[in-house]
Structure formats: structure tokens, C-alpha cells
Write a protein that binds this DNA or RNA. Structure first.
Lengths: 199, 199
DNA sequence: GACCCGAGACCGACCAGTCGGTATCGCCGG
DNA sequence: CCGGCGATACCGACTGGTCGGTCTCGGGTC
């Protein structure tokens, strides 16, 4: 416990291989069902190497979330800063979220399934990040409803829940070799949501 | 192995207490993180009693799914047999699914999180049941789109994914002591979906 | 020759499931 | 109405094995 507070976390080939193996296995069998021995075996390293880079097995899990959410949040900032009208912003956010989810399917699957395994400190950090994205979408819809751009078909909060609902479930059914490309799905979801919001 | 093939499964107070404890713990900490010792402790029974009623820890998990899905499927049959017009049928299905999800929140949470832990036989049984509900909704939307009752804003499959997306995510955010009653949420979701489908 | 990366044997805790056993009850012949 | 017998309900110590994490040490690099 007192030996290393947070571990190096520098990106090296060994670090990357461990991460890769962990994401694979967590996505495939779940966090608890995956042993550290399996991770090091698939990564072709030893326990010593793993515990050199990561403080614990849980730390590995947190790093996976952190990477995924970090990328999504920087996309959010990029998109909102473009100053597009609400419908185009919403479309862009949906497209980005779907691209990010399908492009990081394993990470998204692990996140959806195991997010409650984080300890209190990490958990609240992750929740705060998630909430930032959620609130951004809700506020966007809310404001557009206030100025009449969007209809008040349903409360902004519910619309947000519908959007994230579909996206967050994607790891459960989406397959890269399936019939529809992510961009198609994004267009369909955006079309449907904007149709429901049309004044 | 040869001693008991499937166990009695009769409902007794002991059986019910074990089920209750297992659902609680699986929902709270996850299936793998819950030990059989914890279940029997919370249920105030012994290991012997648990293995008298259930073939294995996995069997407990399957029974939880089975109960939930069984109830939902019989609701599905009841509703479709009423012969209501598509919009009212869809509204009734959404309301029922939301009522069932919020009324069995822990079971729904366990299902959403741990459904991949089932072995091949149980897993395909559960998947088939789930698909039956999914297909019923998709077919309903599809037919109504063909005869012009619903608009072709998005493919029926995508609309179905949107509906189940929000509902299946509910265990992640819905709290019984929250501001909105299940019936309200059902109305809002149905209003939004039907608005998007209006010709 | 100091330092960091990585190796892998090792530890105590814990786990799912087993098994030999006891207690309780319904039923049936006399 | 009774005695006994088979079946069901339940008990809990025990086992073989796995787990996350630690620790000591080798070897390459500056």
C-alpha cells in the first residue's frame, strides 16, 4: 500500500500491452472473472511488470474509463466551441458519441458493465465527467426548447436519457461487421430525435 | 454431479429468502463479487439449504432472469392480444416495460450487468426470450410504417433500439424516490417516440 | 555502479461446491 | 390409533484450488 502511491503510468510497449490485454479480457469475461495471471499471460509479461505500472487491478479499470471519457470530453468541448445551431450541434454530438463508442467498443462495454466496481474516489471522478456530458446535452435541448427552436414534446432531461440510453446500450448489440456503419446509425438516431423535437 | 440434477425449486420461505438475498447482493456488488457465504448469511440460512434448492450459484442467476422475463413476456402477450391500434399498443408496451423495470429494479440491474455470465444453454434461452419482445416491437413499428400509420423517420429496427435503449438503461439512473413516477416517464417516452413517428 | 524495469516464486485469504449426517413429516399397514 | 419407514428439508465442517498482491533478485543501460 505505501510502496507506490500511483505508479509511473508512462506509456511504454509493456504498459500498452498490459492495457490492451486487460481491456480485451475485461470486455470478454468481465472484471472479476479475469485474473491478473490471465492478463499478464496474454500481455506476455509478468506480474512484476504489471504491478510496476499499475497500483492495483482496480487501477487498470480506472485507466480504461479515464482514457475513454477523456477523449469524449475533449470532443465535446471541440464541438460546442464551434457555435453551430442547436440541431447541428446535437447531430454532431450524437455522431461523435456513436463514433467514439463503436471505435472503442471494448472500453465502452467494460464501462457499461463494471462502472460500479470503482472505489468511492474514482467513482465520483468518473461520474462527474459523465455528468458533464449529460448536462451539456440536456442544457442544449433545454435552451432550444425555451427559444422555440425545439418543441417541448418531452422534457429535455428525458430526451437526453433517450439519446444516451441508445448510445450506452450499443456495446450490447453493435458489431463492427454488422450491416450498418456507425455513421448511418448516427444519422438515423439524429433524424429520429430531431423529428421528435420539430416544432 | 449425479446427486441432484436440477433441485426442487418449490417456493418455501427459505427458498424466497435465498432469492431475495441473492438479488439484493448481486444488484449491489455484482455476481462474481458476491460469495455464496454472503448470500446464506443475509438469508439467515446455511449453505446446505442453498444447495438444496439451487443446483449452483449460476442457477440462482438464471432464476432471477427467468422470473423477470417470464413476467414481461406474459404481459406482452396480454397486450398484443387486445388488438389495439399501433400507437396505443406501443404506448401500452412502453408503459408495461417501464413499470416492470422500475418494479423489479434490482433484477433488471442484475440482468443488464451480468447477462453474459450465463452458460451457453441458459444464455440462448434468455436471448431468445429477449428477442421475442424486441421483434414484437420492431414488427409493430414496421407494419405501421408500411400502411402509413407511422412515418419512416428511422428504420423500425433503430426505433426499437432507441426504445429498449432508454428502458434497459433505467436501472443505472432511476431511483424510486426520484422526482418522476414510472407512469410519467412512460408517458414522456411514448409521447416522444410517437411524435417522431407521426406521418 | 546506481538505477530502473521486469521476473516469477511465494503468501495468506477466500471461494464454490461436497458430503455425511440429523430432524421432521406424511403415509400406510395392522 | 399407532408405529415405523421412506422422503424431503436442512446442517456445517471440510476440500482442492484460485485469487490479488508482495518481495527479492537478475540484468541491462547510462
Amino acid at each position: 500500500m505505501s510502496r507506490s502511491a500511483a505508479a509511473p503510468a508512462r506509456r511504454t510497449p509493456v504498459y500498452d500491452r498490459i492495457m490492451e490485454a486487460a481491456v480485451d479480457l475485461f470486455a470478454e469475461k468481465g472484471f472479476d472473472a479475469t485474473s491478473v495471471a490471465e492478463i499478464v499471460e496474454r500481455a506476455a509479461v509478468t506480474k512484476g511488470a504489471l504491478y510496476h505500472y499499475f497500483a492495483s487491478k482496480d487501477d487498470l479499470l480506472f485507466e480504461i474509463y479515464h482514457r475513454l471519457i477523456g477523449a469524449q470530453l475533449s470532443d465535446l468541448d471541440r464541438i460546442t466551441s464551434l457555435g453551430l445551431p442547436p440541431d447541428e450541434t446535437l447531430r454532431a454530438l450524437i455522431a461523435d458519441l456513436i463514433a467514439s463508442t463503436t471505435g472503442n467498443l471494448r472500453e465502452a462495454a467494460v464501462f457499461g458493465r463494471e462502472s460500479h466496481k470503482l472505489d468511492a474516489a474514482h467513482s465520483s471522478a468518473v461520474r462527474a465527467d459523465r455528468r458533464r456530458y449529460h448536462d451539456a446535452v440536456r442544457t442544449l435541448v433545454e435552451r432550444a426548447q425555451q427559444d422555440g427552436t425545439f418543441a417541448r414534446t418531452a422534457p429535455a432531461e428525458t430526451v437526453t436519457l433517450i439519446i444516451f440510453g441508445m448510445i450506452n446500450q450499443m456495446p450490447k448489440w453493435y458489431r463492427p461487421d454488422g450491416p450498418k456503419a456507425p455513421a448511418e446509425l448516427a444519422t438515423e438516431l439524429a433524424d429520429f430525435v430531431l423529428a421528435g423535437l420539430r416544432p
